[in-house]
Design a binder for these strands. Structure first.
Lengths: 252, 252
DNA sequence: CGGCACGTTGAAGTGACTCAATTCGCGTGG
DNA sequence: CCACGCGAATTGAGTCACTTCAACGTGCCG
């Protein structure tokens, strides 16, 4: 298998981190040097593996190197509600640095590579290089904007609208990160899981995806999302991508 | 009118800020002094007034002094989706410090008093006293936890469950802040607005609140929420308050 | 070939929506 | 003090979107 590339090195991991943060924050040379002093532990996660669990008190934070991770709530009834998806460069549980106890879990949607950074290391980085904190803080703020959209998507839109909206968001995020190829990107979700993202039953998700496919909007197949007609899809979705802050301008 | 108390002073405003942040972060004497050097502009907002609008690029951030503010999305169809409610001490649009363009609006649910703090002032505070940033950062992280709950509430629960969950969250937050009196707290929402929080039509909200009232769980009247049976209500709600991080321990 | 996970389909049920009418609470002006 | 008006709450009837459940198809891997 050509896929079976070598484990990324810690150096490559921090490089990805610097590039990701640099996308929305301007890092000074000093900031960048500070980030490059981190010693992440690179690790692998297999499909469906929990990386952190609701109730845990992690002493590391995770960065995605490759693959897709997801955060989810487990409700009293045992149901799962996915909260957000995370691609290369994301720091899905950075908040555990300051919130202590996890209010949700983090799992891998497909086989993924991750970097684990000790909280103590991040904290001492923040102490030594305070301006670097802004970049990480901003990252968590962009996260929150995606949560807000999640509320609106799952509360105000029709079945097809929710699925279409999810497709739009995921494709746009992948594209911004350079992880899309043409009009296609990874979306390793079964229909059951899509239901657990957008709050619909599997039957309804099935009918919604079919509708999007039949109307030549988008086609999900084998963990890959193919956009057929962006215009029509984003219309269906009521997609307004301001919240993803694609533009790099106007940031400090 | 006894209500017509004098405008709070800027000093009282920063005092509230320090107390609020001190609830979850331990502020050093230096941090505290830095916060007390801020010069907020105290202002009033009237019921239904927008304080910041979707698309704006504010150069100040808002702190709630009294009353209740709310953040909301306006969808393409013109519908409103409330995202979160904010009580005294909250900084509902702190994220505008780093995100530039607002992806949502902020409005007053009732007559409220607010403090406006210039971004430039906050930024220079962060530069001079980096450790103070942690406290503000943590505040935004707790915000995000509430958004996550919003997704799960509006995606997985029944009508009555959603309303009950909202009641539980709001009462608990008010209680933590010392804004509850006994089993009662402010909740200045019409049934229409409750629908715009939890993603239900007004008719369904009406039936759900009636059910909660008839089962002696909770009673909403004239902008005040009265908890009649906490046990039963939180059961209905599937309420798991970990995410509010009520406990002060275990934080740096 | 057999098993398994996932996708697809149909039919029946139901919770929530829409819409329109009615009632309630309350402040205002006669 | 009462009539009025207005916003909010309540109610009922009809409809619809989504759920549930059970069956069946399909592709893939051992």
């Amino acid at each position: 298998m050509a896929k079976h590339t070598a484990h990324p090195t810690p150096v490559q991991a921090v490089d990805l981190l610097v590039r990701t943060l640099g996308r929305h924050s301007t890092l000074s040379v000093r900031d960048e040097r500070a980030f490059r002093k981190l010693h992440p532990r690179v690790s692998a996660a297999t499909r469906d593996e929990d990386i952190v669990r609701q109730g845990d008190r992690p002493d590391v934070s995770v960065m995605v190197i490759s693959g897709t991770l997801a955060r989810y709530h487990t409700t009293g009834g045992g149901d799962r509600q996915y909260l957000s998806l995370h691609l290369a460069g994301d720091l899905p549980d950075l908040q555990s640095l300051f919130l202590g106890i996890m209010d949700h879990s983090l799992c891998a949607l497909n086989d993924a590579q991750i970097a684990l950074i000790r909280h103590t290391e991040i904290l001492s980085l923040l102490k030594r290089t305070p301006s670097a904190a802004i970049a990480l803080w901003r990252h968590t703020l962009m996260d929150a904007a995606i949560f807000r959209q999640g509320i609106t998507r799952n509360s105000t839109r029709s079945a097809a609208g929710r699925v279409a909206n999810l497709f739009c968001e995921q494709f746009t995020r992948a594209r911004i990160l350079g992880l899309a190829s043409g009009w296609s990107c990874a979306l390793p979700l079964s229909q059951t899981q899509i239901g657990q993202v957008v709050g619909l039953s599997i039957a309804t998700v099935n009918r919604a995806t079919q509708m999007l496919r039949n109307e030549n909007c988008a086609h999900l197949r084998a963990g890959r999302l193919n956009i057929l007609n962006w215009r029509r899809l984003s219309e269906q979705a009521g997609f307004e991508p301001v919240y993803l802050h694609e533009d790099l301008s106007g940031q400090s």
